[in-house]
Design a protein around this nucleic acid. Sequence first.
DNA 1: GGGGGCGGAGTGAATGTTCAGTCCGATCCT
DNA 2: AGGATCGGACTGAACATTCACTCCGCCCCC
Lengths: 205, 205
Amino acid sequence: MHDTSPASAPLAGATDKRTSILRAAMTLIARNGFHGSPTAMIAAEAGVGAGTLYRYFADKDALIVAVHREVETRLNEWLQKDYPFGQSIRRRLDHYFIGLLRFFIDHPLEFKFLGQFYDSPYGVELRRDKIFSKPVGDAGCETIRGLLEQGVAEGIIKDLPLVLLFALFIGALTSAVRDHTHGFIDLHDGLQRRLADAFWDAIRQ
Amino acid sequence: MHDTSPASAPLAGATDKRTSILRAAMTLIARNGFHGSPTAMIAAEAGVGAGTLYRYFADKDALIVAVHREVETRLNEWLQKDYPFGQSIRRRLDHYFIGLLRFFIDHPLEFKFLGQFYDSPYGVELRRDKIFSKPVGDAGCETIRGLLEQGVAEGIIKDLPLVLLFALFIGALTSAVRDHTHGFIDLHDGLQRRLADAFWDAIRQ
DNA sequence: GGGGGCGGAGTGAATGTTCAGTCCGATCCT
DNA sequence: AGGATCGGACTGAACATTCACTCCGCCCCC
């Protein structure tokens, strides 16, 4: 089985095919789910032959995992922009909350893909890691988990299990975004703020 | 296409097969998802022949919809038990919040099934209806939507769009239950209470 | 003994994956 | 320099597998 790293990928403009395939896969999976996205369809959408897919990825699973990695990398970069180092815990949590809201609203396909991914066998383990240990920011950046922990220690956040605080965070966030992408509501800036405030009210001491 | 109502089902003890199939379908779909639950496997789990399945349901879709109806009926009955008519809005909302928590904790398979269902093409429309118009309680019972509406009108709940209030409700709830069923936390009675309190803090004026 | 619920091998469609061949650009040989 | 050779990225038709669904004979019960 070959790797998915650029090292083993063909040179020059050929890399465009890899990204074409990644984008096509994300788009179709977001729209139709894993099983509504046959490899033939992904290849067609990407404008490559059915076999080409297997020159870049060992199998469909590897492709899906690669899409996930790529999306998460972009998400992490997005979250690190303008990170309010040194400011209050609430402000830093707000940065994550609104940052995630904005990213998902601006990138609905990425949102739907991640939703599919984390609800599949692929993602459950990752989810566990994310809550318990792994940083959301790639390197050097504080984690949501760390901020919640610190807030609890300082007595400004309710002394609930971290997992529950995180559930409030991610649950409110994803439900609201889902309603937005389904067209049930328009999550404009003002509502984003008020939702973040409501979340803060939920967890503050 | 034939119906799934008992009227058209075979008589006598044969109904046991119908419920066997329903239970088997729910169990396998909860565990492996729709695509990971071939009809042959469902039939085997139910202890019937592969063809028998089609004596009770027109096709796999009809079976899935029937499972959903059956689960929701039981959920509604559960929620109507001990409904605190006439008590404060907070208490009535609490009844729903903790009632749903308990039901899902006591019935993890039902929870996972509903999660799969509402994230699939089957359920999106139903989700929309549930938020916008349909009652959760079957008949005569107040709806979560109605309670939130009333709370907003009385000025004791934040004046946010109903959809967002509902997103806070269902998002916090489902995220917490998911963490519980994944074994990340033990949502005992005390935590259930404190989570309900946190939710109330999020939406109260 | 006969009729209807039942079983499970069978069927055709669809899907993931492969592989023999094509094509294009680089490299080498004269 | 220019033609011959080669390498390997790319293709897409073919293959093996899986799935939802059907069909016909069995068998149990009246």
